[in-house]
Amino acid sequence: MPGRAAETATVAVAANFARPLAALVEAFSRRCEDRLALRVVHGSTGGLYAQIRYGAPYHVFLAADADRPARLVAQGHALAGSRFTYAVGRLALWQPAPGGATVDGPAVLRARSFRRLAVANPDLAPYGAAAMAVLARLDLTEALASRLVRAENVGQAFALTATGNADWGFVGLASVLARPNGVRGRWWAVPPGFHPPVRQDAVLLSGGRDNRAAEAFLVFLQSDEAAALIGDFGYGVPAR
């Protein structure tokens, strides 16, 4: 008799977590005994949130904040009791350059010896809101306003900086640490106290109810194996 067809879940993930999710999906696939499959869609947290509200056929949402998953639960688009924090994001000020060295980020920003600074759109992307909080803490919001280059999400902010379309960029620390040592560039790992925590929450969407692949993946995401992988990519992991 032919085997049962694989049950598939679509995971909508914030752009900053695309690389770690690829590793998690691979580990999940190795571990999973049943024929369960995952499909991944990535974008800005705000953009994915809007798509979900308008009926996009996603089963799991891995956001780059805690607010949008909570809103989806309140609006009936996600299941109550399914939301949890899977990672805590870290922000970095980064410039691509040969070699690799840390810098005094506040001094770089106050010197203003650059023309363009890439930031994710703070209205759509939590990392953008975190970047603006850093500038506010340093009392540089107005001074640097004309030099900001807005990206849709933190992944695009990284791309703008990597291609020279911005001199510096506020990016995910995980993206910096993922680069080989010889081309890691210059960076400042922003201390967590400089901005509100970038809690990244996961939630089971209404369309994922009774989807075995979606439910199993969320269980796996809370495992020690998943926590170790997430930590390897430069994210904080909440206590289980």
Rank of each mutant, 00 (worst) to 15 (best):
P197W: 12
F170A: 08
W188L: 00
R150S: 05
L205R: 13
G155V: 04
D167R: 05
R186D: 09
L140I: 04
N211C: 14
A189Y: 00
F170V: 13
D201C: 13
N165C: 02
T161C: 03
S206P: 00
L140R: 13
F194W: 13
F220C: 08
R212L: 15
F170R: 14
P192G: 14
L144N: 08
S175V: 09
T141M: 00
Q200M: 15
Q200W: 00
R184L: 10
A166I: 10
A159L: 14
R212Y: 10
L204Q: 12
G193K: 06
N165S: 04
P196Y: 06
L148A: 06
A145R: 13
N165Q: 15
V154M: 12
E152W: 00
A213N: 10
F194S: 14
V198T: 11
D167W: 01
L204K: 12
P196S: 09
F194E: 14
T161L: 00
A228P: 01
T161Y: 00
N165T: 02
E225G: 15
Q222D: 05
A214T: 07
G193D: 12
V203Y: 05
S146L: 05
P197C: 04
L148F: 07
P197L: 03
G185N: 10
R184T: 11
A228Y: 01
D139L: 08
L148K: 06
T141E: 09
D224I: 07
L218Q: 05
A143S: 15
L173W: 09
S146T: 13
P180M: 02
A145Y: 01
R150W: 12
L140M: 15
E142A: 12
R184I: 08
P192H: 03
G208H: 13
L204Y: 02
V149Y: 01
W187R: 01
V149M: 11
Q200P: 00
R179V: 01
V154R: 07
A213I: 10
V190E: 00
G172H: 06
Q156V: 15
V171K: 10
A214E: 02
T161S: 07
D224W: 03
A151H: 07
A214G: 10
A227Q: 13
A157W: 00
G208Q: 14
A178H: 05
R186A: 13
G193E: 14
V176R: 11
